[in-house]
């Protein structure tokens, strides 16, 4: 599975960047529709859950994101 940041909810606090042990996230450079530099999942392939199905591990990003902006999606799924 891969983490996806929802631009509707992300407030650009960068906690995911700090928390992720695998450096999957990086700072946003574009301003989101809500006016924040939303975080970007730049290295999803580094994630512990890359290609993992069923019960996920780590999830430090999802549990920490204060704005419920990160969710899991199958690798193949188109997300923007």
């Amino acid at each position: 599975m891969k983490p996806v940041v929802d631009l509707k909810y992300c407030k650009g606090c960068n906690i995911c960047i700090y928390m992720c042990p695998k450096k999957c996230y990086s700072k946003g450079v574009d301003i989101s529709p809500r006016g924040y530099f939303a975080a970007v999942v730049s290295e999803p392939q580094n994630c512990y859950n890359h290609k993992r199905e069923g019960k996920l591990i780590c999830e430090l990003c999802v549990l920490s994101c204060p704005d419920q902006a990160i969710s899991w999606h199958p690798e193949g799924e188109e997300t923007k």
Partner: peptide
Amino acid sequence: RWPHVFCPGCGNGTVMNC
């Protein structure tokens, strides 16, 4: 009611997740 009113980076949302 989303997004909630808490400031960017506020710990409240993290506690909510847990």
